[in-house]
Design a protein around this nucleic acid. Structure first.
Lengths: 144, 144
DNA sequence: GATATTTAGATGCAAATGCATTCAACAGCC
DNA sequence: GGCTGTTGAATGCATTTGCATCTAAATATC
């Protein structure tokens, strides 16, 4: 069934893309200006930290980050290269690997947060009142 | 001044990024599945078409597409390679170029639209009622 | 009118992304 | 056990992006 999009739909499409790109760019440049790694590293580090000392499997990370498999593989390679994570062999599955955070990884994530948080606040929080944030979040949620 | 982002702000950040990426991916794959060029081509072709037979300058396009200069330069090179636009020398500025659409370019844009429109509708229009679209658009607009 | 600054656009190089394929290990089935 | 299909992860190759720089033309300054 092929309904053409209403003008309102088209307007939402445009502002949605622009707002998201704008916000992301602001955050990315804040991190870059502070000589910190990009956003994708933060997301990965956070998930790995959340998994605790047990660590987690690479495919779990890919699921949580909503990333393609090869993207995860390469992201992990870079992050490991920077010494922020460890990849150990997995006992119950010889193909798999267990990923854990190093102390340096935890520390990097901690240093990234204030910069990230600050940029997020100025790109979003400062632009809307709390009630509006709630409404916006509910509406955006329907798109998922 | 460094206010930490409220949980609502963080929630909006997350859903905003996810919703935008999701919508964009749906549109991009719809185009790819139909063996059509990517979204960025559409935006460029549309702007160039709007400029009419007079055409427009490359830097105007960059301003309208909110793209970095080198991105525009290369995008135009690819689109020209596909024979969808013409780049002519500019009379009043020897550095400049005038970009116009070829018939093939116009036709390609026309063929892309239904696919684009359809994906946009299913990613956005079908998920919200008209009133909600209006509200969402107004809220997103505040982020710009 | 010579010199310095800014602007339009391209490009070399490095890094990231997408796609398809690879390899090895696992799981199911006979 | 042997065979088939599936899953976890890596990688070769081409395309795209980002950054910085470059060239040439235009504009401003003196």
């Amino acid at each position: 069934m092929s309904m053409p999009p209403s003008p309102e739909t088209q307007a939402v499409w445009t502002t949605l893309i622009q707002a998201a790109d704008g916000a992301r760019n602001q955050v990315e440049s804040a991190l870059a200006d502070a000589s910190l790694p990009p956003l994708s590293w933060y997301d990965a580090l956070l998930e790995i930290e959340r998994a605790g000392p047990t660590g987690l499997r690479a495919y779990e990370l890919k699921d949580r980050l909503l990333m393609p498999q090869y993207g995860t593989s390469r992201l992990l390679a870079r992050i490991e290269g920077a010494g922020l994570i460890l990849r150990k062999a997995c006992n119950d599955d010889a193909r798999g690997q267990i990923i854990t955070l190093t102390e340096k990884g935890a520390e990097t994530r901690r240093r990234m947060w204030p910069v990230y948080a600050n940029a997020m606040e100025s790109a979003i929080g400062s632009k809307l009142k709390p009630v509006q944030l709630g409404r916006l979040n509910r509406l955006l949620g329907k798109l998922l």
